[in-house]
Each structure stands twice: as structure tokens, then as C-alpha cells.
């Protein structure tokens, strides 16, 4: 990717409880690259695994060139986002739920669009111990229930 900017995104704490606030900051050293169209920050949960990804943003902020807000981008930028009670972080066998703070920068050079993404994962559980919920260790008789055409 052409001249990908360095993105730094850090969180104060990565082990959180429902209702806590995720806090941190991001910085783009040297500022956004020439031709930047947008700098976007979001806090979201997403799923991973063999299924299609589900994603939900609980906070989204954007600084764009087309509305002039990019010029006012605080760099570095500190954020605090209150978290909901659910869903908890989960590391299952088929379903995995991750909480992330995400920084996305998009820019255009020579007529081509580029994008740089930085994710910083944190864990949301009632214990606040940084360990996602997991199903118990599989037993021998546990089984996959079957596949059905959709």
C-alpha cells in the first residue's frame, strides 16, 4: 500500500466490566497523509469465525475532508466511550465476540483509494479480568448437531 501512515491507538485498560468506560487515545504521527478523505474512530463489537461477520458500533466519530472537519482533527485525540452491558467478550467454538476500538484512515493517491486500519481489542466481562467467556472443555459425547441447507 502506498505510503501507509503510521497509526497509533492505545487504551488505558483492556479488561473492562459492563457499564465501564473504555478510554484511550490515538495519534497519527506527522498527521494524516496527503489526499486523506477521512479519519474515523469507532468502538464496536464484532464476531469472527466461519460465519459471516456481525458488527455493531456503539460509538463512531469521523473527520472528513469533504465537510471540512478533517482540518480540525485533534492529533493526538483522547476518547472515552461508555460501554453497554452486553454482549460480553466470548471465545466459543463457532461464535467469537470481540470488542475493539478501531481507527480507520482513508486517502486517495493517483486516483486510487487506500485505507489503513488499526484495531485495539479489549475484553468486556462481568469479572473484568480480561478473559473472555468460554464454553466448558468439550466432552466426548458433545457433537455437532448437523448442517442444514439455508
Amino acid at each position: 500500500m502506498a505510503d501507509e501512515p503510521e497509526l497509533r491507538l492505545e487504551l488505558i485498560r483492556t479488561a473492562l466490566r459492563p457499564g465501564d468506560t473504555v478510554a484511550g487515545a490515538f495519534v497519527i504521527p506527522g498527521g494524516p497523509p496527503p489526499g486523506t478523505r477521512s479519519v474515523e474512530f469507532s468502538a464496536l463489537w464484532r464476531t469472527s469465525g466461519q460465519a459471516g461477520e456481525d458488527l455493531w458500533a456503539i460509538d463512531y466519530r469521523a473527520w472528513r475532508s469533504d465537510d471540512g472537519s478533517l482540518a480540525g482533527l485533534p492529533n493526538p485525540y483522547s476518547f472515552t466511550v461508555p460501554l453497554p452491558k452486553v454482549p460480553w467478550s466470548y471465545d466459543g467454538r463457532l461464535v467469537k465476540i470481540h470488542w475493539v476500538a478501531r481507527l480507520r484512515v482513508r486517502w486517495v493517491r493517483d486516483g486510487r483509494a487506500y485505507e489503513a486500519l488499526r484495531d485495539c481489542e479489549f475484553v468486556l466481562t462481568p469479572e473484568g479480568d480480561g478473559i473472555p467467556r468460554r464454553p466448558p472443555t468439550p466432552r466426548r459425547e458433545d457433537h455437532r448437531d448437523g448442517e442444514f441447507g439455508a
Binding site: P136, R139, H143, D145
Partner: peptide
């Protein structure tokens, strides 16, 4: 029982996959 269920989109068609993960 706890059951995980996903819509597998890896192949040409979508398939529903279920697994009992806790009992």
C-alpha cells in the same frame, strides 16, 4: 444446554451449523 449457531458463508451456499457447546 448451550448451543452455538452460525450461518456458514464460506462455500457456494449458506449453511446453518449448530453445535452444543455446554451441557
Amino acid at each position: 444446554v448451550c448451543i452455538e449457531e452460525v450461518t456458514d458463508t464460506a462455500g457456494m451456499r449458506e449453511a446453518l451449523v449448530r453445535e452444543t457447546v455446554a451441557s
